[in-house]
């Protein structure tokens, strides 16, 4: 069975092909709405979008993943733990230190994504959940269980550092713990 991305690409290729024949016959990339017959222009310009995002001030977070650690920052004065990590505290008089997060927690909520964004269309269905760690910090990540009925609020989970495939980069995952 083809992935959602393959299906989307196939659909676009069909439109492109139709527009090519229209360019040859009437000289313009015209498509027709399949229900109403309304004429549509098939855009001849395609833009690829990929962002380059600074992580300079939170590099430590990504370096620690390779050591199997999930880091957060802590505001020294207020004691507030910031996750996702921030290099600066909300109070500019305060300053941060890096702390390791506990790996144990409980599941708060979850969903299984069946209809996927284009850039996630190559994955099988995936579960996203939010866990509360033992120190109260909440983490959103994929959950290693694709049957939503096997999960329940309050169940014990742990955080694992994993390599995401096929992109082959380190990230973190919520894993239900057998009880």
């Amino acid at each position: 069975m083809s992935t959602q991305r393959e299906q989307a690409d196939m659909f676009l290729a069909q439109m492109d092909q139709f527009a090519e024949t229209m360019k040859q016959s009437v000289g313009a990339p015209i498509l027709f709405d399949q229900k109403t017959g309304a004429a549509l222009w098939w855009d001849q310009r395609e833009m690829k979008l990929r962002f380059i995002i600074s992580i300079e001030k939170i590099r430590k977070f990504f370096e620690a993943l390779s050591e199997g650690k999930l880091l957060a920052t802590k505001c020294k004065k207020s004691g507030q733990i910031l996750f996702p990590p921030q290099a600066f505290c909300p109070d500019p008089e305060d300053e941060i230190e890096w702390v390791e997060l506990p790996k144990e927690g409980e599941l708060l909520t979850w969903t299984v994504i069946y209809t996927k964004p284009y850039s996630f269309g190559h994955y099988p269905d995936y579960t996203v959940g939010i866990a509360r760690l033992t120190n109260g910090v909440q983490v959103l990540a994929w959950v290693r269980e694709t049957d939503p009925k096997k999960l329940r609020a309050g169940m014990k989970v742990k955080i694992e550092i994993v390599k995401r495939q096929p992109e082959n980069y380190l990230t973190y995952e919520i894993v239900p713990v057998e009880e």
Binding site: T111, I113, T115, K116, S119, Y123, Y126
Partner: peptide
């Protein structure tokens, strides 16, 4: 994690 708008509200 590829959340979708229905996914956010599904949580």
């Amino acid at each position: 994690f590829g959340l979708t708008f229905p996914g956010y509200y599904a949580l």
